[in-house]
């Protein structure tokens, strides 16, 4: 379907965002001798093998012991190291929430919690591993920066940007092969939303894998004569409220799109911003208070309504509410 559309962004290659992390980490290791890596028995899944091979003395295999990994990373910052921890998003957050809260966030330690296999697109492993609450948990923590990039290039750029950012951060990425539609040489500015497509009727605020779906949705809406603005919210916290309010001041309504629970996610953050400053109709694309299940990423995104078609549907509802 998307091939027949006039897309504002296109791609020639697909890749997993976790590889963007792995390649970014390797480059970060070459640029900065203080970068260290820790992994809880998932080196292959996190694409940390190249870093491990090139910098064995700066890489620490922790085994299946994520709580310890978070504590170790917090301790390693004392003396100037910049630890990047790697495991699945589920084990990077829910499993170790108290360790992150006390030893990293409250203690304001320069730890980068890097989390792969987030959301439904993990696929066949099912709901035990498909965490859909991680952004909410992490954004609730004071001091924590929360980043959810959209493709390989942006994930790599975000990884590199985190080296120079001092403070606790959560970097979320995923497993599926996904269009690479942002430039390789992009500058990643933490906390600065990226307006990817200008529009005037409705704003689509998207994060992570769903930014691509938003790009597709924009083309679909355009075919029907609706002008949608697409804003890539790669940083969930600190949220670029100025960019959100500027856009909604113009369009008057919005849709949020995320591979996450509606409770506590990007949509909640945007709603909070709008309700305080500029109340306007907001529709949500996300998982509505349920767990995931096994299936292919495409099947799951369709079943749970996390795709371009549903963004289009929600955009039209938002438009109706605006004019009604």
């Amino acid at each position: 379907m998307e091939k027949t559309l006039d897309l504002k962004y296109t791609y020639t290659e697909k890749k997993d965002t976790r590889s963007g992390f792995g390649d970014g980490l390797l480059e970060a290791g070459r640029n900065n001798p203080n970068v260290v890596g820790l992994c809880a028995d998932l080196i292959g899944s996190l694409k940390m093998g190249a870093f491990q091979k090139e910098f064995p003395e700066r890489f620490f295999q922790v085994g299946i012991a994520e709580a310890n990994m978070i504590g170790l990373a917090a301790g390693m910052t004392i003396g100037g190291k910049i630890p990047f921890t790697g495991t699945f998003a589920n084990f990077s957050t829910g499993r170790v929430y108290d360790q992150i809260r006390q030893s990293v966030a409250y203690s304001d330690k320069n730890v980068k919690i890097c989390a792969s296999h987030a959301g439904l697109t993990l696929g066949e492993d099912g709901a035990t591993h498909q965490i859909l609450e991680d952004l909410g948990m992490m954004r609730m923590l004071p001091h924590m920066t929360v980043i959810n990039p959209c493709d390989y290039n942006q994930t790599k750029a975000a990884t590199l940007a985190l080296v120079d950012h001092v403070g606790p951060a959560y970097l979320r990425f995923g497993r599926p092969s996904w269009p690479i539609f942002t430039p390789a040489d992009q500058k990643f500015e933490i906390g600065k939303a990226w307006k990817m497509i200008d529009g005037k009727d409705v704003t689509i605020f998207a994060t992570g894998h769903l930014v691509w779906e938003a790009v597709v949705a924009e083309a679909m809406l355009r075919e029907e004569g609706i002008s949608a603005e697409v804003i890539n919210i790669h940083t969930i916290k600190p949220l670029d409220t100025e960019a959100i309010l500027d856009s909604v001041a113009k369009t008057g309504c919005a849709v949020s799109a995320e591979e996450h629970q509606l409770n506590g996610g990007l949509g909640d953050s945007i709603a909070q911003t709008l309700i305080r400053n500029h109340p306007a109709p907001l529709e949500y694309v996300g998982v509505n208070d349920s767990f995931g299940e096994s299936g292919t990423p495409t099947q799951l995104l369709e079943k749970y309504g996390l795709n371009a078609e549903n963004i289009v549907k929600k955009a039209k509802i938002a438009l109706r509410r605006k004019s009604g």
């Binding site: 709580a67 504590g71 003396g79 330690k109």
Partner: peptide, 25 residues
């Protein structure tokens, strides 16, 4: 004070991390 503590069980991990940084340094 170099790290918060109170929720138990976390300090040994932190100390080990700090010890490994000492070795790297």
């Amino acid at each position: 004070i170099r790290i918060a503590s109170g929720s138990l069980g976390q300090g040994l991990s932190v100390g080990i991390g700090a010890a490994q940084t000492k070795k790297l340094n």
